[in-house]
Amino acid sequence: MTDTELYTEVSSDFMTTGGKVLLFDIEDNVYGVEIQYITEIIGIQPITIVPKVPDYIKGVINLRGKVIPVMSVRKRFGKEEIPYDERTCIIVIEYDNIAVGLIVDKVNEVLEVDPEQISATPDYKSVNSNRYISAIIETQTGIKLLLNCQKIVAE
């Protein structure tokens, strides 16, 4: 994967103009999702198991009459799952008309990101979970990792 490919994965608007990002926690890391992809944030819901799919797909939920798959972001990133509590959230994102719910430990805040805070991810072929990160956001409170919605939805 070359540098140029990486750039195309982030919406080019975001790299140049910045924008709003919703932050959420997974373990000790703070991740961000561009707000333009987010449909809504809901509490944890009863999940119907779908057999024979990878373990990070927890199943499907009923979002007001729509059936959408939910995945555990923890599992997706190869981390241990923790029991759901009242802070566990499902962030529903939509990319290319495909909706998916992301189960996260908790959601934080919405952050306005300036372009100069954004840098592209380094190209580590060996690091697997790096594929789902499209950019790195530096803030005073620390580093946030921007989630690549396309990869999350498509792979």
Binding site: V50, K52, I57, V60, V67, P69, I98, A99
Partner: peptide
């Protein structure tokens, strides 16, 4: 099913 799940046959 969502296209996402269809990927998993």
């Amino acid at each position: 099913f969502s296209p996402l799940l269809n990927n998993f046959k």
